[in-house]
């Protein structure tokens, strides 16, 4: 596990080697038309993924984290969803201006994605081998034989025991953890620079989860400039894997910072509350768990000021009227909270 420490301080090193960010999302707005009006699932989100880093996006349901990531690959079902504005640049190239065919070339080759439900992401009527080979043949134009050999290699790499034999099996013959390994193998077929993982371990058991996370870290360590964008609601998973963290709430980025800073010294009241309400961080016998009061507001009736003002315990009048900007702090992180205005200057 030496690579663990390596990944933790590698972004700075990688960033000097290749100055620009790998993926740059600027002021992204993804809206959904619903019967009750326009639901602003993602409302002006900006973040960047540096080469070689693992960026975590954390948030609860309805925070817009998944929609933001699906928007990067333009996988928003339209209708009802549409990208209303903003900019997505991959290695400097604007993704939102690409044609459908150009997008298809980027998906899989340059940016790959793995999803929460490996059961539904694989086609049940084709064998695992066929599905891996299909990806290889489409993107890399390999011969049948070469594709088969490469597919076995890939399945070996994701530690599927007896890979050659299991090529002939169908998805239902695999367990959830094994299927997620297959999904990773398919995603990594073409050596993508960016892997977007949308809740990759949420449907799995803890012991399987830790196997999959270790696998992802290990594969990542093999390629120094590749990046992972990990979307999850599980703060533990983020802490274990990510270099930097983006905290989302109400369709907006609320806090960005290094993992050590976010977990060690959360600055946004929401981040602070999230961490404090975890039972694993609670000392037994300290009375009840810390709670954030209230419920996540619906994307249809977000408060006008700060999105968190209805549940914040440090709220004051200005919060309800005026949405705070994302204040940049001296240490490079950013927090969307009026309380940090002074410090940001």
């Amino acid at each position: 596990m030496t690579m663990q420490t390596q990944t933790h301080d590698s972004p700075a090193h990688a960033a000097t080697a290749n100055p620009g960010p790998l993926l740059e999302v600027r002021d992204l707005k993804t809206y959904f038309r619903t019967e009750a009006g326009i639901s602003k699932a993602v409302d002006g989100v900006s973040f960047e993924v540096l080469p070689g880093e693992i960026l975590g996006i954390v948030g609860e349901s309805g925070s817009g984290k998944s929609v933001a990531c699906l928007s990067v690959l333009r996988l928003i079902p339209d209708p009802p969803g549409y990208i209303a504005g903003g900019e997505i640049r991959y290695r400097g190239e604007p993704l939102l201006e690409k044609s459908y065919a150009q997008m298809r070339a980027i998906r899989g080759n340059e940016i790959a994605m793995i999803f929460q439900e490996p059961m539904t992401a694989l086609n049940p009527v084709f064998t695992i081998g066929m599905q891996v080979m299909e990806t290889l043949r489409r993107h890399q134009r390999l011969s049948r034989r070469a594709a088969r050999e490469r597919a076995v290699e890939m399945l070996d790499a994701v530690k599927i025991p007896d890979a050659r034999k299991r090529m002939k099996d169908y998805p239902h013959q695999f367990s959830g953890g094994m299927l997620q390994r297959v999904m990773i193998a398919i995603a990594l077929c073409c050596n993508p620079r960016l892997l977007i993982a949308d809740e990759p371990t949420t449907a799995l058991d803890v012991t399987t989860q830790s196997q999959i996370l270790d696998l992802m870290l290990e594969l990542k360590a093999r390629r120094d400039d590749a990046s992972i964008l990990l979307v999850t609601h599980d703060l533990g998973v983020v802490a274990e894997t990510c270099d930097r963290v983006v905290v989302m709430y109400g369709g907006k980025v609320q806090e960005v910072g290094s993992a050590t800073r976010i977990f060690g010294q959360p600055r946004h009241p929401y981040t602070h509350g999230l961490l404090a309400s975890l039972p694993s961080r609670h000392r037994k016998g300290d009375g009840p768990l810390y709670t954030i009061p209230g419920n996540v507001p619906s994307a249809l009736d977000m408060p006008t000021g700060c999105k968190f003002c209805t549940r914040c315990d440090r709220v004051f009048d200005r919060c309800r009227l005026e949405e705070p900007p994302l204040h940049r702090l001296p240490d490079g992180s950013a927090v969307r909270c009026h309380l940090l205005e002074e410090e940001a200057r």
Binding site: F32, A36, S39, S61, G62, G64, S66, H233, S298, A299
Partner: peptide, 12 residues
């Protein structure tokens, strides 16, 4: 944990 069904939320 999913944001995939905004329609559902509209009802909610």
């Amino acid at each position: 944990m999913q944001t995939k069904d905004p329609d559902q939320k509209a009802g909610g």
